[in-house]
């Protein structure tokens, strides 16, 4: 069964870039433009096996999203990766403290993305 990955980013370009890489590798992809949309989708029954979220977004940023996701019963253990830039080391750590599994550094080359996903998602 193919795994579902949710991408949360306010940049449509970033979403498209990640989405096409993931779909080419056989993942199902759900997208959301900010934390609030992502949370709404999760509450509406979307069940991703992994969430990849940007940090800086309008409405609800990535860190707040992580906090909220971890409070949802069905998502206590879902792997979450943050999308950061090389200068955001503090955000990565903060994300980890709030319950993120790890981070990706933008831009994420396709093979790296898949490698990391295979690392955090058994059975992917």
């Amino acid at each position: 069964m193919s795994k579902t990955i949710m991408i949360v980013d306010d940049s449509a370009t970033m979403v498209l870039s990640l989405k096409s890489t993931l779909e080419m590798n056989g993942f199902k992809v759900e997208t959301a433009g900010d934390g609030a949309q992502a949370l709404a989708k999760l509450k509406a029954g979307v069940r991703p096996d992994l969430i990849i979220t940007d940090i800086n977004m309008p409405n609800m940023g990535g860190l707040e999203l992580i906090k909220n996701v971890r409070a949802l019963l069905g998502f206590r253990f879902t792997p979450i990766l943050t999308l950061t830039t090389e200068s955001q080391a503090e955000k990565r750590d903060e994300g980890k403290k709030l319950g993120a599994t790890g981070w990706l550094v933008k831009p994420v080359p396709g093979p790296d993305l898949i490698k990391v996903i295979k690392q955090v998602l058994p059975g992917a």
Partner: peptide, 9 residues
């Protein structure tokens, strides 16, 4: 800045 968010998905 909802417009962009809506574009995204």
């Amino acid at each position: 800045f909802g417009r962009r968010a809506e574009d995204a998905i």
